[in-house]
Amino acid sequence: MTQERTGVATVKGNPLTLIGPELKVGDKAPDFKVNKDLFTEVSLSDFAGKVKLISVVPSLDTGVCDAQTRRFNEEAANLGENVAILTISADLPMAQARWCGAAGVDKVDTLSDYKTNSFGQAFGVLIKEIRLDMRSIFVVDENDTIQYVEYLKEMTDHPDYETAIEAVKKLV
């Protein structure tokens, strides 16, 4: 049976139900399958040996998600080659590509959870009511152990960018 968590997230104060487990620092990052484009799937193992900053956004076409993705794209240059920055949303891959082109975002891998919601369920961020992924940040080390987690309580809030970046810097 799929785990459902209530009372842990809201959008503009309205309660949401998250599907999947609440992951914690020290947990092994669960595997997932997301789409790079309509036909190409990638999983956690495609980033093996790298530190992964996983930035989860509901949709790139909203203000906070836009700002979050741009911020991590800017930070990418300072983090080195051993860091993969993944932005995961339930947007269609074509919409992600269009948004990245328009925004000039080129250092972040945008990946789509639209097809199976595999990432959302594995990381406990799939919003039952609207089938989008809840804003969150995960930093996963080169051995796929979670070293930092931020599940945002309110969807419209910004994550703690500085603390997430510091968590990555400690690993490289």
Score class of each variant (00 low, 15 high):
residue 1 M to V: 09
residue 1 M to F: 11
residue 4 E to D: 08
residue 11 V to W: 06
residue 12 K to D: 08
residue 12 K to C: 08
residue 14 N to M: 06
residue 18 L to K: 03
residue 19 I to K: 07
residue 22 E to N: 06
residue 25 V to D: 02
residue 27 D to H: 14
residue 28 K to Y: 12
residue 35 N to V: 00
residue 36 K to I: 02
residue 37 D to G: 12
residue 39 F to P: 02
residue 43 S to G: 15
residue 48 A to F: 04
residue 49 G to K: 12
residue 50 K to G: 03
residue 51 V to S: 07
residue 52 K to V: 13
residue 54 I to W: 00
residue 58 P to W: 12
residue 59 S to K: 06
residue 60 L to K: 08
residue 61 D to K: 12
residue 61 D to P: 04
residue 65 C to W: 05
residue 66 D to C: 08
residue 70 R to H: 14
residue 72 F to L: 09
residue 72 F to E: 02
residue 72 F to G: 01
residue 74 E to K: 15
residue 75 E to D: 13
residue 75 E to Y: 14
residue 76 A to D: 07
residue 77 A to Q: 14
residue 78 N to Y: 05
residue 82 N to T: 07
residue 83 V to L: 04
residue 86 L to E: 01
residue 90 A to K: 03
residue 91 D to N: 06
residue 93 P to H: 11
residue 94 M to L: 10
residue 97 A to G: 03
residue 98 R to V: 13
residue 100 C to S: 05
residue 101 G to K: 13
residue 103 A to K: 15
residue 104 G to P: 02
residue 104 G to S: 08
residue 109 D to Y: 14
residue 109 D to P: 00
residue 110 T to A: 04
residue 114 Y to I: 06
residue 115 K to V: 01
residue 115 K to M: 08
residue 117 N to S: 15
residue 118 S to L: 05
residue 118 S to N: 03
residue 120 G to T: 13
residue 120 G to V: 09
residue 121 Q to L: 13
residue 123 F to Y: 15
residue 123 F to S: 01
residue 131 R to M: 12
residue 133 D to Q: 07
residue 136 S to A: 15
residue 138 F to I: 13
residue 139 V to W: 12
residue 140 V to W: 03
residue 140 V to M: 02
residue 141 D to T: 10
residue 143 N to K: 15
residue 143 N to Q: 11
residue 144 D to Y: 09
residue 145 T to Y: 01
residue 148 Y to P: 06
residue 152 L to N: 03
residue 153 K to N: 09
residue 154 E to C: 06
residue 156 T to L: 10
residue 158 H to V: 00
residue 163 T to G: 04
residue 163 T to E: 15
residue 163 T to C: 03
residue 163 T to M: 08
residue 163 T to V: 09
residue 166 E to Q: 15
residue 167 A to W: 11
residue 168 V to E: 04
residue 169 K to T: 01
